[in-house]
Simulated assay, not measured.
Amino acid sequence: MNGKRMRAGHRFCAHPGSTETGRRLELKQTGGDDIGIRQLRYFLAVVRAKTVSGAAQSLRISQPSLSQQILRLERTVGTTLFRRTSRGVELTSGGHAFLRGVEEIPEQLRSAIEAAVPRTAAWPVGVCSGTPASLIAGIDSEIVADWSEMCAGEEMPSLQFVPAHSREQPDLLRHGEIAMGLMRLPVTTTRLFLAVVADERLGVVLHESHPLCDRDVLAWADLRGQRLLWFDTEHAPGYAESVLRELDAVGWRPSLNVIDNRRHSLFIHSLRSARDLVALRPRSAVQGDRHLVWKEIADDAVPREQLALAAREGTDHAERLLRMARRNGWPIVE
């Protein structure tokens, strides 16, 4: 949401006479009935993304359309819900009060529908980028096996694995937009039940034409002068901060070449195009790719990648995840 678009009219405006005090937010007597679930979804998407452009992208609608929907919601509520910042938008005091009152509504409605129609059409499972296909297949099999054991003879809802960044999955779970989430640790775990399903050392990923491919193993010193193929840290801020801190501790402070790591073809092309560019991935992430070479780092101080399966505490999915964790020996995140 850049300045020019905002000045052109696609911005949030204060409702005449609105205030931003900490008092309890009250809807107009006639206005509350006009708020729909779609508007709440839009509002919650902006809260999660902290930018209108990011929320619009996740909702797959245009930014001007989303801005207009938020303006309509603000007029109905009777107060400004967001204020602009240098990095996007943030909730006003009225926005925080509104969030506390409505954030559970989508999940409550979904639960009511499931209670009325027990056989849900689908269970969406969020998957962070870079997750090995073999791990997704294994999670799929475990969920199916648990259903077969616990609900024998009943038709199981279909599983839908959908892309979702690690940063946004806790909110998606809390709002009931996904049933479970496969995310990169560490993440904020408030009201979430998590089990670690993959824990691997990182290694150096090279294109087959890279000069370092002739080494059996690599030391940190071998990577001096190499740039690191990286991702948008906002997608998994906890993981990014942890890895970069560990690299700093061993004396490697590479310049970062940031790309959209959801596109594997771009990942391979970037590595092929530069002789001073490497990536850090667990071995399982690149197995079977004939153009990429994985090299172990000969040091005890090597960052690890942990992937966890998560569900919202107190739900059937959390109970299901606990059973799966016990059967497979998956560590529980405290």
Score class of each variant (00 low, 15 high):
residue 67 S to L: 11
residue 26 E to A: 12
residue 290 R to C: 00
residue 270 S to W: 02
residue 96 H to I: 01
residue 14 A to H: 05
residue 292 L to T: 06
residue 223 L to A: 10
residue 55 A to N: 09
residue 312 R to W: 02
residue 246 E to M: 11
residue 68 Q to F: 09
residue 37 I to V: 15
residue 317 H to V: 01
residue 169 Q to H: 00
residue 119 R to H: 13
residue 147 W to C: 07
residue 323 R to E: 04
residue 316 D to H: 09
residue 3 G to V: 11
residue 305 E to Q: 15
residue 235 H to I: 10
residue 319 E to S: 14
residue 147 W to I: 04
residue 19 T to Q: 08
residue 181 G to F: 01
residue 302 V to S: 11
residue 78 G to E: 03
residue 165 H to V: 07
residue 269 H to T: 13
residue 307 L to T: 10
residue 334 E to C: 06
residue 307 L to I: 15
residue 52 V to A: 11
residue 117 V to L: 10
residue 334 E to S: 12
residue 28 K to I: 00
residue 308 A to P: 04
residue 216 D to W: 04
residue 157 P to N: 10
residue 142 E to D: 13
residue 133 A to T: 14
residue 120 T to N: 00
residue 235 H to L: 15
residue 40 L to M: 15
residue 70 I to W: 03
residue 162 V to G: 03
residue 148 S to V: 06
residue 41 R to E: 15
residue 72 R to H: 07
residue 229 L to K: 08
residue 266 L to W: 01
residue 192 L to Y: 04
residue 127 V to Y: 04
residue 190 T to W: 05
residue 187 V to W: 00
residue 27 L to D: 02
residue 179 A to T: 15
residue 281 R to I: 00
residue 21 T to A: 10
residue 107 E to I: 09
residue 285 A to M: 08
residue 169 Q to F: 00
residue 243 V to C: 15
residue 108 Q to M: 12
residue 220 W to P: 06
residue 134 S to N: 12
residue 198 A to V: 01
residue 240 A to D: 11
residue 257 N to S: 14
residue 247 L to M: 07
residue 233 T to W: 09
residue 218 L to P: 06
residue 231 F to A: 11
residue 110 R to D: 11
residue 128 C to Y: 12
residue 142 E to W: 13
residue 226 Q to N: 05
residue 102 V to W: 05
residue 91 L to W: 01
residue 47 V to N: 03
residue 181 G to T: 04
residue 17 G to C: 07
residue 294 W to M: 03
residue 202 L to Y: 12
residue 296 E to M: 13
residue 168 E to T: 14
residue 65 S to M: 07
residue 106 P to R: 10
residue 128 C to A: 14
residue 333 V to M: 14
residue 59 L to I: 10
residue 332 I to Q: 08
residue 230 W to M: 09
residue 187 V to S: 02
residue 206 L to A: 06
residue 185 L to T: 04
residue 211 P to Q: 09
residue 19 T to W: 03
residue 329 G to T: 01
residue 311 A to G: 09
residue 160 Q to E: 13
residue 49 A to P: 04
residue 280 L to V: 02
residue 242 S to E: 15
residue 157 P to K: 04
residue 135 L to T: 08
residue 100 R to F: 01
residue 208 E to P: 01
